[in-house]
Amino acid sequence: MLEARLGETQLLKKIVDALKEIISLSTLDCSETGMQLQSMDNSHVSLVSLSLQTGCFEKYRCDRNVSLGLDLKSLSKVVKSASGDDSVTLSAADKADKLLLSFESDNKSRTADYELKLLNLDQDHLGIPDTNYACTVQMPSSEFARICRDMSMFSETVVISCTKQGIKFSANGDLGSANIKLAETSKGDITIDVEEPITQSFAGRYLNTFTRATPLSDRVKICLAPEVPLLVEYSIEDYGYIRYYLAPKVDD
């Protein structure tokens, strides 16, 4: 059986918010080492990968691997009903058809239990190869969110260019063009590692959706390499991450 307790529901709320705009149904695979989830969006343009190691949890027990088919909209409704500082315990039997969520207030005076019906999902699982990225950029996640929002006013396509001088985001559309450049800073809030300069185009709508994960982490890591998907990674405390992969746009 599975029993996993998070000290604060706030973390689960942030995780669900980071997932639900991009995927609606997904399987959460639980094992003794933690929880994993991987799904493509409906258009198969992007892939989201979530990993929560046992260290994310106050208490974690998973005797046998269990796969939980989740409707993220339903899960979102349940977590919304809880207060952020409640603790939450997720539990499921070995061959479960439902997930139990038990919320407990700080002073233990209020408990709320929900049963969420699980789904039988038959999803493709993709193998993500280890990639030696040509460019790796780290910046404040709020800065990345701001850039993605500003770019999307100009065009549905965002061009990302990265050189040793910095990272540049460009958008060209009917109302004009936008260019935002960031250089590495001495105080280390922006770091830019470049093996080879690169320029690639991406759908701004997806980049914007990835920034729903901003509350999870102060920092975001952006990795680019020729002819492979962009990686946008937010770490989750010290024991997990949410990674978004986005297929590039290519010239006709």
């Binding site: 343009v45 493709d124 699982h125 993709l126 193998g127 992969y245 297929a247 006709d252």
Partner: peptide
């Protein structure tokens, strides 16, 4: 003009 590629063309099913 640019065309959107599919993520499944980069990562293979396992």
């Amino acid at each position: 003009n640019s065309t959107q590629t599919s993520i499944a063309s980069y990562f293979k099913k396992v």
